[in-house]
Design a protein around this nucleic acid. Sequence first.
DNA 1: GCCGTCTTGTGAAAATCTTCACAAATCAGG
DNA 2: CCTGATTTGTGAAGATTTTCACAAGACGGC
Lengths: 219, 219
Amino acid sequence: MSTDLPAVSDSTIRRLSLYLRALEGLDDQAEPTVSSRRLAELAGTSAAQVRKDLSRFGSFGKRGLGYSVAPLQNHLRDILGLQRRWPVVLVGAGRIGSALFEYPYFRERGFEIVAVVDRDPAKVGRRWNGVKIQSVEALPTLVRECRAELGILAIPATDAQAAAEALVDAGVRGILNFAPVQLHLGSHVVVNDVNLTLEMEALSFALRTASELGSGEGG
Amino acid sequence: MSTDLPAVSDSTIRRLSLYLRALEGLDDQAEPTVSSRRLAELAGTSAAQVRKDLSRFGSFGKRGLGYSVAPLQNHLRDILGLQRRWPVVLVGAGRIGSALFEYPYFRERGFEIVAVVDRDPAKVGRRWNGVKIQSVEALPTLVRECRAELGILAIPATDAQAAAEALVDAGVRGILNFAPVQLHLGSHVVVNDVNLTLEMEALSFALRTASELGSGEGG
DNA sequence: GCCGTCTTGTGAAAATCTTCACAAATCAGG
DNA sequence: CCTGATTTGTGAAGATTTTCACAAGACGGC
Ligand SMILES: NC(=O)c1ccc[n+]([C@@H]2O[C@H](COP(=O)([O-])OP(=O)(O)OC[C@H]3O[C@@H](n4cnc5c(N)ncnc54)[C@H](O)[C@@H]3O)[C@@H](O)[C@H]2O)c1
Ligand SMILES: NC(=O)c1ccc[n+]([C@@H]2O[C@H](COP(=O)([O-])OP(=O)(O)OC[C@H]3O[C@@H](n4cnc5c(N)ncnc54)[C@H](O)[C@@H]3O)[C@@H](O)[C@H]2O)c1
C-alpha cells in the first residue's frame, strides 16, 4: 500500500474531492460500479480527466467494468488523508464561525472543531455544543493540547495576519482563511482562502460580458 | 470607452478581484501609485502576472512610475462590472444564508440581497433588516420584480437542483452555490460553487503529503 | 473457447497558462 | 538636452494542464 507521492497538481486534488463527494451520493447497492463517464458527469468534468486524475495514484478501475464505488471511496479518502481525525481550531466565533461550527459535514469528514477562541469577552465562556469559547490568550496552549494542525480564521482582515502567525507558532500548518487579506506565512504553511466577494465578482464579470455582446452599456 | 472583450481566462478575472481588494487596502494619499511588483506582493502573485493580466484590458500604467491607485481601481471595477448595483436573491435563510445576508462587504461592492426565501413556515414572515423572508412560492415573482440576475443558493443539496432551476426560469443567470452538489443548468447560466469541505480536504492532502515525506504512515 | 461490447490506462498532441527578457517610455537631476 | 534609474507592455519561450485516441483488458452470452 505504498502511495508513490508523485507531484500532483492542486486542480487534480480538488477534483478528487469532488469525485469522493459524487461517490458518496451514489447508492452503492443499486450502483456498485461507476464508469469514468458517469463520475465525470456527477463531478462536472470529462471522462478522460477522471481517468487521468485517478491514474496518478494507481489503477483502481477494471477495464470493461469501471470503478467499484466503495473501494474507490476508500482510495480517495486515503489519498486525501481522510482516514484519520483532524482536530481543528476555530478563531472567531462570529457569524461565519458559528455557521461553520454547526456544519455537520466537517465532522463527518473527520474535521472536528475542538477549540474555539474569540477576542470578545462577552463571548468567552459560552458553550457551543460542549465546546467552550476561550480567550485568544489561550490559543497557543489550546493548539498544543489538541494537537491541532489545522486552523480556521473567521475574524476581520485587520487581525488575520497576527492571528495566523499565532496559529503557526503554536504548530498549525494549514489554514482556511475567510478574512479578505493575503496572508504572508512561512512556505511550509498551506493557506486556502475563501473569498466570497471574489466569487460574486466573477459572476458579475461573466454576466456583464454576456450582456454586452448584445447591447451597449447603459450610461 | 469601448472595452474590447477578448477571451479572458477565469484565473485572470479572479486575480483582478484580488488586485482590486489590494488597491482598496492602500492609502492612496500616502501611496498614489503602485508598481506591478508591489501589487503582486499584496495579491500573492508575480509582477509579470499582474502586468499580463492588466494588459489584456488596456494600458493603465505609466512606464517608470507604475499604476495610479484610484484610476486603476475604477478600471478594475469597470472590467468586473461593479459600476452598477446587482440585486441578489437569497434562497435559504439558514446559518450560511444569514451570515451572508449580514455580510456588509457584499453591499459595499454593489451586491445587494433584496429578497430572501425559505421553505420553513416558521421563518417566513420574519424581517431581516427590512427584508421580509418569503415563501418559496413567491420566488419567481420576486426575481422578476427585483430584476435579480444573481442568486445565492444556501439550502441543502437535495433541494438545490430544483431551486436552481426555479431561479433560472425566473431570469437568474448567475448563481453562487453553497450546496454540495453539481448543478446541471443551461450553458448560458454561470455557477460558482463554494465547497468548504473541499478546501479542508485540500489542506488535509497537503499536510498528509508533507508529513509522509519524513515518516511512514501509522497503520 | 470465442466474439462482440464495453471501459480503463496512458502516451502523444493540443491547448492553456505563466515566466522570461527586453525595447520603449517616463522622470529626476543637472 | 542628456544621463541614469525605473517600470510598463509584450512577444517568445517554457511549463503545465487538458484532450485525444487507441491498445489492452474484462465480461457476458453462447
Ligand atoms: N459573514 C459572511 O458572510 C462573510 C463572508 C465572507 C467573508 N467573511 C469574512 O470572515 C471574517 C469574519 O466574518 P463574520 O461575518 O463572521 O464577522 P463577525 O464580526 O460576525 O465575527 C467576527 C468574530 O471575530 C471576533 N474577533 C475579532 N477579532 C478577533 C481576534 N483578533 N481574535 C479572535 N477573535 C476575534 C469577534 O469578536 C467576532 O466574534 C471577516 O474577515 C469577513 O470579512 C464573512
Ligand atoms: N453551515 C455551513 O457552514 C456550511 C458550510 C458549507 C456548505 N454549507 C451548505 O450550505 C447549505 C446551507 O447550509 P446551512 O448550514 O445554512 O443549513 P441550514 O439548515 O442552517 O439552513 C438551510 C435553510 O434552507 C431552508 N430550506 C431548505 N430547503 C429549502 C428549499 N427547498 N427552498 C428554500 N429554503 C429551503 C431551510 O428551511 C433552512 O432555513 C447546505 O447545502 C450546506 O451543505 C453550509
